[in-house]
Simulated assay, not measured.
Amino acid sequence: MRKRKVGILLYDYVDILDFSGPAEVLALTANNKVEQALSLYKKELLPTRPFEVYTIAETEVEIKTHSGIKVKPDYSIDNSPELDILIIPGGPLRAVQSIVKNSKIIDWIIKHENIDYICTVCTGAYILGETGLLDGKNATTHHLALKLLKDKYPKIQVLSDIKVVHDGNIISSGGVSSGINMALYLVEKIMGRATAERTCKTIEFTYH
């Protein structure tokens, strides 16, 4: 099975769990039980891991998360590697509205419309909504942002009371911790239920 390159978009005031949850799930997913065990003991992740996870921002300058913790992206959108999976995390309304107005980032997202998967966490759906890639598709977001998403992008079929929505090559998820569910769903789609369940045990998380 080929290794998937996963890029997680970062921006100022992004919510940490929105991106760190999926990052941890995918980074700690292994091809088999032996590799899974080794990943818990070695300092460095095994080169054979099925997902290689990067953080990407508009520039490589350190960003400040919603909680104030600072993170330095691995790449900028100008020098990032080609991706198989793009994850767009959410943040407070003012932060995602700023990204929606950033045509450089929006155009960069649109360029990825034909990759294996584009995934959103929480209000990251609001950012993806601006690209038009969600038009005519089912999607979800944080429960407090459902009406906002409907009103701003009426062509999106916004669903409530569901953690993960998959439509075409787009997977959206609800608020904050739902990004973990989304990443596990992604593991199941690509590698099978048994691998997703093994990853659940590794991170001690209950998956549906």
Rank of each mutant, 00 (worst) to 15 (best):
L144I: 14
L9H: 04
R94A: 15
Y13H: 13
E204Q: 14
L45E: 02
H66F: 12
L45R: 07
T65L: 01
Q97R: 15
S160F: 06
N114V: 11
I162T: 11
G91L: 07
C119F: 03
L28S: 00
G21V: 05
H112N: 14
A196Y: 04
L46W: 02
I190Y: 04
P92Q: 14
I109F: 09
G129S: 10
L83E: 07
Y153E: 08
A145Y: 03
Y153H: 15
S177G: 11
I190Q: 07
D107S: 15
I180D: 02
F19T: 00
I171W: 06
G168S: 11
V61A: 14
H112G: 00
D15F: 06
P50T: 12
Y153M: 01
M182C: 13
D18K: 04
L186R: 04
T59F: 09
K64G: 09
H142G: 04
K201A: 11
K201E: 13
I162R: 08
S160M: 08
P81D: 03
R2Q: 15
K64S: 14
K64F: 09
L128G: 00
S160H: 12
T65E: 02
C200P: 05
L144D: 14
D18A: 01
I63L: 11
V6A: 07
Q157Y: 05
K104V: 15
C122N: 03
N181L: 09
L93Q: 15
I16M: 03
P22A: 10
I106L: 09
D116H: 12
S160R: 12
A95G: 14
I56V: 15
R4D: 01
E35I: 04
E24T: 12
I156M: 02
V6C: 12
L86Q: 04
I127M: 02
R49C: 07
L40E: 14
K111W: 13
C200F: 09
L83H: 07
M191E: 07
K5C: 12
E82V: 05
E130I: 02
G129E: 05
L45Y: 08
E130H: 08
L148H: 10
E188Q: 15
H143V: 13
H166L: 04
P89D: 05
P154I: 09
H66K: 10
T48A: 12
H142F: 05
Y153K: 06
F51E: 00
I87E: 00
D84N: 14
Y185Q: 10
I190C: 03
P89G: 03
S177L: 13
H66P: 05
P22C: 11
N31E: 12
T199L: 03
N114Q: 13
T65Y: 03
V165P: 00
G129D: 06
D135K: 08
L159C: 02
S80R: 03
I109M: 11
S20H: 04
N102C: 09
P154E: 04
V14M: 07
I105S: 00
V158W: 04
G132W: 02
G124V: 01
C200W: 08
E52D: 12
L28C: 10
A194K: 15
G68L: 08
I156A: 08
V96H: 05
K72C: 05
L133C: 10
A37S: 15
K163I: 01
V71L: 11
D151T: 15
